[in-house]
Every structure is written in structure tokens, then in C-alpha cells.
């Protein structure tokens, strides 16, 4: 793997280093601030889970990293996306396209709509080799079959000419994974890869993804709103709220003791068997509109700990222990309260 050894404040080698990324959407109702200064890093072989409600900016960040933002109306207005130490945002369109799909790939939520309904899965897989490597039609087809076998599709050779609607949901998601893996990328971004699947199939697909990642030492960004999925596979978690990262931490540390009231709210809203019969905890209120994010800490209107300072001063990311950070003025109190 080529790596110029770019290291940041936290040390180590980052495969992807997103710094202070800002994305806006210009809509008729005003400018929506979808991503407001997001930074995160992924090392080779590491799994970063990005957690957040819909509208928290987790998918938009990923799309900006991939360079597939809908623009207009979306626009990256600031920050850097360093991939192998090179800022992708300064590359020409054609250079960026060559990286996309080949060096960094993306897996989408609903494979039925994310795969082209009128092309056979074989054609859609083979297209990766044909376009990026100029492989011959016949060889590309052979490699498509290999890919399908690799992700565990039975009778791959017979099914290579089938269309997406002829596969089950789990098989379709496996094909999406195969497509992302095709050219051996260094980074995979999976945007809610299991949300559209049955619970039993979810586990299988997640296991497959984790296994392939380990085998190929790829970096993996797992975007999800499902805390359950995260616990087993992620190394690090970044929690997003209103286009900001509010807390990052190693996965077990975060589960043991969250350092941000929002994270605590999320953890408390998971139904638990030993709390049977009790009312489920819910975070009061709704996430803010991205065209009118409250001043100070964006979470303050919903926060049980909010003080005057929260309404005026946006909290920086405080270092809250080894490898963890929290954007809360009262991170210490939150952390202590959780213990």
C-alpha cells in the first residue's frame, strides 16, 4: 500500500483524514448547514462507526468524502479530505473519478434501488474491471463470477446473468459488497448496509463485511443509526448531531461511560430485556432544522444538563480521556454521572 506516512495529532498513520469538513446545501428555504466542521480519521484495517439520527450529516459527510455529493444544491465549503495524505478536494474531476470505486468504494443502504434494475448483476460487476482496468469483456465476466463466489452467492456461474430483482435482499446486499470489493479498495464506506434487511440476514451480511475487511486490511467507515450493529464490529465510534461530531471514543469506552449527554440519551433509548415493563427512555424534542441550528451547543434545547454557557458558547471538542473527545462543556460531569 502506498502511504506517505501522514500522521496527525493523535499519531499513527491515517488512511483517511477528514479535517474540518463543511458542507452546505442551498435550498429555497435558505442555506442548510449539513456538515459543520467534521474531522475524523480512519487507519488501515480500522473500523470507524459514524452514529447519528437521520439529518445528522453522517451520510452527507460520506458523500463529500466520496465526491458524489448532489451538486447543486450541495457544496463543500471548507476543510480537507486527505486520502493517503493527498487532499481529494484539490484534485481534478477526472483524477477523483479514478480513485472513486477503485481505491475507495461505497456500499449503499437499499441494494434493490442502488443496483441498476435493467442491467444484469454480472454486467454491473464486470463494469468495474472494464472501466477502471480496461479488461476484456470475457475476462471481466470471469472475474465477476469470482467476486460473486467470494461473497457467498450460491451457483454464481449460473446466476451471473440474472437481474437484481431476481435475488433476495441479503443476496443483493452481498452483490453490492462484491461490487465495492471488486478492485481491492483501501477504504470502504458502508452507508447503513444492513438497515433494509431482516435481522437474521443483517448479522450474516455484517459478518461477511467484517471478515472481508479483516482479510484485506481495509479501512471501513460504517454509517449507522443502530447502536446494536456498532458494538460488535467497530473499533471507534463518532457520534454526530446537527452536522457536528459530538463525541468520539473507542467503542467499549463509549458504551461503558458516554461523555456527551446526547450519546447517553441514545444509549438509554435502547430497549433492554432487564428493564422490561418500564417506560422506554426517549430524548425529548426533535433535532434542529439545518437551516436554523441553535447558537451555542446545538443540542442545548434538548439537553438535561444545559446551562447558560451552552446557549451562547459552542463547545469545542474536549479531550475526555485516551483516544476520546466530547463536545460538551460538562463532559466531565456526564462521564462521572455515567460511572
Amino acid at each position: 500500500m502506498t502511504n506517505d506516512g501522514h500522521g496527525g495529532e493523535g499519531g499513527g498513520t491515517a488512511l483517511l483524514d477528514v479535517r474540518d469538513l463543511t458542507v452546505e446545501f442551498r435550498t429555497r428555504d435558505g442555506v442548510a448547514h449539513a456538515v459543520n466542521g467534521v474531522s475524523y480519521r480512519v487507519a488501515p484495517g480500522e473500523t470507524l462507526a459514524v452514529l447519528g439520527e437521520s439529518g445528522s450529516g453522517k451520510s452527507v459527510t460520506a458523500q463529500a468524502v466520496m465526491g458524489i455529493l448532489d451538486s447543486p444544491p450541495g457544496r463543500v465549503t471548507g476543510g480537507q479530505v486527505l486520502f493517503h495524505g493527498r487532499d481529494l478536494l484539490t484534485l481534478r474531476r477526472e483524477e477523483r473519478r479514478r480513485i472513486r470505486g477503485a481505491k475507495m468504494a461505497m456500499i449503499f443502504q437499499d441494494a434493490l434501488s442502488a443496483l441498476n434494475p435493467v442491467l444484469s448483476v454480472g454486467a454491473q460487476l464486470a463494469e468495474m474491471f472494464r472501466v477502471h482496468e480496461g479488461t476484456s469483456r470475457k475476462e471481466a465476466r470471469g472475474r465477476a463470477v469470482e467476486l460473486m463466489e467470494r461473497v457467498g452467492i450460491p451457483a454464481a456461474r449460473a446466476r451471473v446473468d440474472d437481474y437484481p430483482h431476481q435475488f433476495s435482499g441479503g443476496m443483493r446486499q452481498r452483490i453490492m459488497i462484491a461490487m465495492a470489493l471488486a478492485l481491492g479498495p483501501d477504504l470502504i464506506i458502508a452507508d447503513e448496509p444492513t438497515t433494509a434487511l431482516d435481522v437474521t440476514v443483517q448479522a450474516q451480511v455484517m459478518d461477511l463485511l467484517a471478515e472481508l475487511q479483516r482479510e484485506l486490511t481495509m479501512g471501513l467507515i460504517l454509517i449507522t443509526h443502530d447502536l446494536g450493529v456498532v458494538a460488535d464490529v467497530a473499533d471507534t465510534i463518532a457520534v454526530m448531531y446537527a452536522g457536528r461530531i459530538v463525541e468520539t471514543a473507542p467503542v467499549h469506552a463509549l458504551y461503558r461511560a458516554p461523555a456527551h449527554p446526547y450519546t447517553r440519551g441514545l444509549l438509554e433509548s435502547i430497549p433492554r430485556l432487564d428493564h422490561k415493563g418500564r417506560r422506554l427512555h426517549a430524548i425529548k424534542g426533535l433535532p434542529p432544522s439545518l437551516t436554523a441550528i441553535p447558537p451555542g451547543c446545538p443540542f442545548h434545547p434538548r439537553c438535561p444538563l444545559a446551562q447558560d454557557i451552552c446557549r451562547t458558547d459552542p463547545p469545542p471538542l474536549y479531550e475526555a480521556g485516551p483516544g476520546r473527545a466530547s463536545a460538551c462543556h460538562f463532559w466531565k460531569e456526564t462521564l462521572d454521572g455515567a460511572r
Binding site: 473519478r97 472513486r100 470505486g101 437499499d110 443496483l115 441498476n116 477502471h132
Partner: peptide, 12 residues
Amino acid sequence: DYVRTALAKGLP
């Protein structure tokens, strides 16, 4: 979605 997938695949 499939158009976004096609873009994400790095197709011209």
C-alpha cells in the same frame, strides 16, 4: 439511487 451507485463506482 442506482445513478448515485454508478457515480460511486467511478464511471465516466
